[in-house]
Structure formats: structure tokens, C-alpha cells
Design a protein around this nucleic acid. Structure first.
Lengths: 285, 285
DNA sequence: ATTATAGTGAAATTTAATTTCAAAGCAAAA
DNA sequence: TTTTGCTTTGAAATTAAATTTCACTATAAT
């Protein structure tokens, strides 16, 4: 039994196959995880209104060799439970460079981690289906989000998907008008409230194209009107530091979509990827 | 004493103020961390060729109330030690979507973490100085790296730095010719061997502008010829999945440079950031 | 040389963990 | 309904572990 198995999960899983008294112990343990390691078996028996023999039986049933190794395992699980994640840390004036380096990196990492935890797997699934079946894909994004769109275009082009990115109001409006039922419009906007994006959104709505939104986890007009919403989590420290985290999260969502499509259509996609990779490699000799 | 204090560190710190016998125990514990939680105090006394009383004294000296709570703390520390980080994982055809989601995210996270560990703080320091003192900054990158350059341009523009990005061979060559002593050229290239980039590099070399390279940790012509090299670490699974990780690492390096410059010049920079933020916000009402 | 003092382990004591066993509960069979 | 066999349970007995006490040793200071 590995040290990294979380005991909480294990207890919950086993709970159904426990005897009534064992279940009482299980419940108490789950409710009072933190204090368990400091209790003696007798203490725990009293607290659960059972007997020490029953507590020990519980430990054995859970697969431990005795009370001691049960305690050890609980402690390890407690230790591995993520410590209260430090929140995003804005860069302060005059910060030491090594602090800047580590904070910046950590913020970016956290942005990915948090996105992973808010993203709706089901929505990703639908998005991948829609992208696969689409005639063509257009990406809409302004500013930093526009860059994410360009990145997406580069990726999806490599597997021979018809796609294009529009990064300014004018071309977005034009492109939006020309969309059709079988098309997919991917809107990329952290706030979900960028005025240009909303303008374009209105027009796309009328065309019947499927709308995918990549936007922060929050109510927004964009999120409301999209057919599929892919949420990202982003640091709230963007004001001074210039929207650093959100691109990273957005790019990760793009990566996921791309990987989802590429993996599902691997047979076809493989030859494209090899070809596009080779041409670039040969040019770089 | 928090559960999240790492005991290894604590023992090492205290080691000097321990008695000889206690030190023997400390050494054994450090050498055999994993097995300690399963030993009784008598076992440990035998293994360290001391007595149970001494082992207990050791625990007390370390600040624990007894052997039991010492064990609990060791277990917690063991639990919190990061499990062996899995390496980059390529996406396989037909992978389950949730696997794709988590692998993609993890690869991106790992790319940042690894970059953090290979990056040379000193080089970053010099890069920040150079960027601050420069008349203007130009970014050179092709393809995905070009996007990173554009991102950098967006950022540095916001703090009123003269800068521009060139993403194709033609405009790069043109811009390179016009560089001067006080200028900085930032080359962004994962391989460090992109032919267009090397062409441009030759020209920049002659102008006397300072050359910063953002490139993977490896020998390369670019790394050789640059004045300052900022290394990134990138997954080696790029062939099929389309250079996913490296952008993220590159963007993080850009973030670091930007934060470094912005933090050092905070007084001036603050008003720019506020202004640029406000104008965008007001437009989005 | 003598006296503190800190460090140590053996033995004694206390406490905790484990095992054993008999009683209680309960369901299926007679 | 009663009997039988099985499971569950806690009290008591046993064993093991942790803690305390205390006397001995070595070393440094007087």
C-alpha cells in the first residue's frame, strides 16, 4: 500500500462493506482527521463509543497491520494534503530577482492548475466533437487573447483543419458575417465582456454557427450566449502585471482541444503532423 | 509546530546542538527516513546502538511531546514529499479525454517547473539590466516563437518601452540591419538553429547590439553567439503534439523579464500600467 | 584532587496495543 | 417457534511499547 494513497478516499470507498461499529469509527475518523494521529486507540474507542478491539478491527479491515501503521498512514495523508495553496502573488516593486522569478513561475503554474480544476470535462468533450465535425473554425480574440487565437490557428492548421484567426474588430465583423451552420466560432476573452468580442458575438449568433467560449470562470455575456463554455481560472493580479496568467491558461485550453482532436483522429492526423514537422526540420538544416 | 514543516530540514538544522548519541539517532533517521515510522522506539534504539531513553530524549530535544508524535510528524513529512514527478507524457491516440486534459496540463506545468530549475538567475539579472538601459528592444522569432515575441512586445509596450517584434525572415533582416549599439535584440527560438534566425543573428552581430537568446537548454549556434542566454526546458514530445510546451516556458521567461524590469522601475512604470489598464477598461464598459 | 555537570543506559513503571474469549444479536433451517 | 450456526461486539488478559526514574560515567571547571 503506497504512502501516497489518500486514506480519505479509501475509507469512503470501503464504508459500505463495514460493520455498523466499524462505520462509526470510520465516520469519526473522517470527521476528525487532524486529531486522529494524537489519539491512543483507547481514546479513539471512547470517542467513538466503541471498544479498542473494535477500533483495531477497523484498522485491520482497512488493510493495515495494526493501529500504529494506520496512524502512520493517516499522518502521511494529512501531510500530502495540499497545504493551503498560496494565492497568486503580485510582483512588488523592488522585489528581489529570485523572488520575481519564482513568483512569476508559480503564478503561471497555478493558473494551469486552477484551470484544470474548474474546467468542465463534458464541455471539453462536446467542444472536441464540434471541432471535429466542423467545416471550418474561426478564432476571435483581441490583444493577448488574439495571440492565443493565432497560436490555435497555427496548431490546427498543422493537422489540416480549415481555420483562421481574426484579431481586430474590423476583420472579426467581416468574418463573422460570412459564417455558416457547419462552422465553429471560438471566442477567446478573459473577461467575456470585451466590447469588440460582444459585437462580433451578436453577428455570429445569427449565422447559426456553433459558439465556443474560452473565458474566465464567471458570469458574463459571452458565457451566457455561447453554446459551449470552457472556463479558465486566472489570477486576479492582472492590473499591474499585465494579464500574465490568463494567456497561459488559455493556451493550455487550446492545447487540450488540439490534443483532443488530434488524438481522436490520430490516423488521419498523423501524416499531416509528420509532414509539417519534416518540412520545417528540413529547412533548418 | 505545523504539519507542513519538513522534518528533514529541522533535524539538519538542529544537528549541531545535539549530544553525540542524539546525533547518532539523527543520522540514522535521516538515512532511513522511510522505515522510521514502522520502528518501535526499542527497535530504533537497537539500530542506532543507543538506548530507548536516548531515542526518546532525541524526540523531546527535537521539540516533540513524545516518540509517538515524532513518528506522526515524520510520516506527515514523508507524505508531503513530492512523489517522483512523472516525466512528460505524450498524448496517445485514443487516450481518454480526462487523460488528455490532465497530461496536457501537467506537461505545461512541468515545462515551467523545469525551466525554473535550468534558468540562470545571473543571466536573468543581466538581461533585466540590459533591457532597462536599452534604447529600444527588438524581438525575433519564427512561427510559435514569433507569437511569444508579439506577446513580449505587447507587454513591454505597456510600460512605454520602445520595442517591436519581427516574425518573418524579410522584416527580420531589414530590422536587424538598422540596429545600433544601445539596442537589444531578443532572439526567441526553441532549437536555436532555425535558419532564418541564424541569418538574422549574423547581421545583428555586426551592429554591436546586445543579443539575448531565449532557447532550449542545449548547445546551439544561437546560444554560442548570444551575449546572454536564457535557457528554457521543454518536453521532448513535440514532434507529434506540435511544440506545446515550449511556448509556455518561453512566455514564462518573458513574464519574468517583464516583471523584473517593471519591478525595478516601478515608480515610472506604475503610471503607464495604470493608464494602459484604464483605457482598456473604459472601452469595455 | 575534588566537585559540578551533562550525557547516558538499565531497570522500573506506566501506558498503549493486541489477543483471546464469551456473550449478544441475527438470520436461516428445522 | 425453536434450534443452529454465524457474525459482531466489548471486557478482560496478555503482550508490547513508551516513558520515567535513577545510578553510573566521563568530562570540564574549580
Amino acid at each position: 500500500m503506497s504512502i501516497h494513497d489518500n486514506i480519505l478516499i479509501k475509507i469512503r470507498e470501503m464504508k459500505d462493506s463495514l460493520t455498523p461499529v466499524e462505520k462509526m469509527v470510520a465516520d469519526y475518523v473522517l470527521q476528525n482527521l487532524e486529531e486522529i494521529p494524537h489519539l491512543s486507540i483507547k481514546n479513539l474507542a471512547q470517542l467513538t463509543k466503541t471498544s479498542d478491539a473494535s477500533v483495531l478491527r477497523f484498522c485491520k479491515t482497512m488493510g493495515y497491520s495494526g493501529y500504529r501503521s494506520f496512524i502512520v498512514s493517516i499522518s502521511a495523508s494529512l501531510g500530502s494534503m495540499e497545504e493551503p495553496k498560496d494565492s497568486y502573488t503580485d510582483i512588488q516593486p523592488g522585489d528581489d530577482l529570485s523572488v520575481i522569478i519564482s513568483n512569476t513561475s508559480r503564478n503561471n503554474i497555478k493558473s494551469i492548475e486552477d484551470t484544470l480544476s474548474v474546467i468542465d470535462k463534458n464541455a471539453v468533450d462536446r467542444a472536441v466533437q464540434v471541432l471535429r465535425q466542423s467545416n471550418r473554425i474561426v478564432f476571435f480574440g483581441i490583444g493577448a487573447s488574439g495571440l492565443v487565437g493565432v497560436d490555435a490557428e497555427q496548431k490546427f492548421s498543422r493537422i489540416n483543419k480549415m481555420c483562421h484567426t481574426y484579431t481586430d474588430r474590423h476583420s472579426q465583423l467581416t468574418a463573422a458575417t460570412l459564417l455558416d451552420k457547419g462552422d465553429v466560432a471560438v471566442f477567446i476573452s478573459n473577461s467575456g465582456a470585451t466590447s469588440e468580442i460582444l459585437e462580433t458575438l451578436e453577428i455570429v449568433k445569427k449565422t447559426g454557427a456553433t459558439i465556443i467560449a474560452i473565458t474566465k470562470y464567471n458570469k458574463s455575456e459571452l458565457a451566457d450566449k455561447a453554446n459551449i463554455v470552457l472556463n479558465i481560472s486566472t489570477p486576479e493580479v492582472t492590473i499591474r502585471s499585465g494579464a500574465m496568467g490568463s494567456r497561459i491558461a488559455m493556451l493550455t485550453v487550446i492545447d487540450i482541444l488540439f490534443a483532443g482532436v488530434a488524438s481522436a483522429e490520430y490516423k488521419n492526423v498523423k501524416k499531416y503532423l509528420t509532414k509539417t514537422h519534416n518540412i520545417i526540420a528540413s529547412k533548418n538544416r
